[in-house]
Design a protein around this nucleic acid. Structure first.
Lengths: 326, 326
DNA sequence: CTGAAAGCGCTTACAG
DNA sequence: CTGAAAGCGCTTACAG
């Protein structure tokens, strides 16, 4: 691999001249031509490490994700990536495979690589996280979860769940199962349940039961099957679209018709929910938008601009065919 | 931000001693303790750029992807990421958003960032690609497409399509529509069609028509609807699972029952194909495996070991409910 | 075990 | 417009 010195030597000029040429400084036409040729011939590519060592502000934003095989994650990444590119910044992705320790390690690793800031698609915030936020000494922005003292962009889980609760009640459902996830996940496990609960509490005569599962479709299939047998709800409100897909599969396997015998709802608004039949009624979150907002906010943070500590991304109840009007 | 000099000064030792401590060299117990404390207090994080400038072999492998919102892509990435981690290497992802020029730029950008090698989840290989492969002067490995003179890992599209063709023929189908994609995509557009065609040619009395669509579900819905009206095939062989999902949606919208009135098959083996009903018969590709193989091959390449120029990833016809036995 | 020094490949004032 | 020199934050022989 050629270095700037090689190029300088070959062109018969000083390193600094090459550097100036590369960075658009003032260079005479003749040396410009010479350099152009030498660089083309050699296929010279500057070493970013050496550049960054001297350079001004780094322009790489680190994004840490819990997993890659999730619609919400990839959509958010697309939003971040596109917006950062517009703002002349680069995105570095690091996957922690749902391992909280690895997530922490990744933060330190990124700090070492001198990213300008870190966007964390968060699931849980532990003390080790808070300590890392302090130590890395660069802006950190959470997406999907909020935490006191940390800039956060969240989906409006509570309101969305409240609206979803109201919606199924309006459709006449009174025997309702809610299939949620662990409360360690504040956004999905706590907020969606709480918003839904509040809607239920505003109405009398509702028979509601709460269940818990994981984010995995297979687990959702299994427990949904049990719920259908045990409780026979008229509607099954699922905390994510994937859980809802599992519930639909369970219903199908048991020969229970949707929505005639069982209504099902989700949260997320994954593309697939519109393609399947019956299409799924769900609370759609705008992940790409949230990603774009995250990118913008991060750029503001690294420029020392003030931003809101807590930003809500919007949502919408998408009414499809999976809920029966009783 | 503290540097190694600051730490050295604070601990009253030389920079080299700090460096040795950090890299597990021999350091006395006392200075070890001292350093430990100073580093903990200051939250010192070494600058990777400076490290890499000196360092031996870089351990970052660049992966360039055409898009993020694709099951095949994310699964392949997971495989690469996991395997690289095992082999003590890091993955850097760069998304080209289906823009071939950006793909090329990303290659040069990665070379500049001194990645050890580049894994390209390829769609098309142009001359500009070949030129970039030369210039970056580091190992390049294609996944999903093959090209003479370039190390490639491909799914066995041809054989899979041949098997799929045989399968639908065995099920008694003789009025067959094949819904493919542009031939610019050698793997999906050319190979899957060619393998299928060969199977068809081995049997007499088959009425087959070939159609073309994009990778987008919406386009597949539209054209499938036309195919159903115009040609009334007994089976619609789709070049990807997403296209098949679109076809299923089209059938549903028209009230055509699957598989009784129309059989449908796909390629890919996306998770969702098992969840929907009827579950989709498809040629499953093992994307995570392919990703793992890519990671292993890349590590061999950067260590100057010999590898096969063309490696096939395996596949399997997954028989589900979407094909009728006539 | 420890330190002084050279060097990795760049950039950036500073002279000329 | 151009070059010599210092320096970015590390690592790595080489002495001691």
């Amino acid at each position: 691999m050629k270095t700037i010195s090689d190029i300088a030597k070959m062109a018969g000029v000083a390193k600094s001249t090459v550097s100036r040429y590369l960075n658009g400084g003032s260079v005479s036409e003749t040396t410009k031509k010479k350099l152009e040729n030498v660089i083309k011939e050699t296929g010279y590519i500057p070493n970013t490490f050496a550049q960054s060592l001297k350079a001004k502000k780094p322009n790489i934003i680190g994004t840490i994700i819990p997993r890659l095989d999730s619609y919400a994650t990839t959509q958010t990444l697309i939003g971040i990536d596109e917006e950062l590119r517009k703002l002349n910044h680069q995105m570095l992705i690091s996957n922690s495979s749902q391992d909280l320790e690895r997530e922490i390690e990744n933060m330190y690793e990124m700090a070492r690589q001198k990213v300008a800031g870190i966007i964390l698609l968060a699931t849980q915030i532990t003390n080790a996280h808070l300590e890392a936020f302090e130590k890395v000494d660069i802006p950190v922005l959470l997406v999907g979860q909020e935490h006191k003292g940390v800039y956060s962009i969240i989906h409006n889980d509570y309101d969305a769940a409240y609206d979803m609760g109201k919606y199924v009640l309006e459709k006449g459902h009174r025997r309702i199962a809610f299939l949620g996830v662990t409360e360690k996940d504040i956004a999905v496990g706590v907020k969606r349940k709480a918003g839904f609960k509040r809607a239920i509490q505003e109405v009398d005569g509702v028979n509601v039961r709460f269940y818990e599962t994981t984010f995995k479709i297979d687990d959702a299939i299994a427990i949904s099957s049990t719920i259908i047998d045990e409780f026979k709800p008229s509607v099954l409100v699922c905390a994510t679209d994937n859980i809802a897909l599992g519930a639909m599969k369970a219903a199908y396997l048991k020969g229970v018709r949707i929505p005639e015998e069982l209504s099902i709802t989700g949260f997320g608004g994954y593309e697939i929910t519109e393609i399947i039949h019956p299409a799924l009624t769900t609370a759609k979150f705008y992940y790409q938008d949230a990603g774009r907002m995250a990118a913008q906010s991060m750029i503001q943070l690294i420029n020392y601009e003030e931003i809101e500590p807590l930003i809500f991304s919007k949502y919408k109840i998408i009414e499809k065919e999976s809920v029966d009007n009783l």
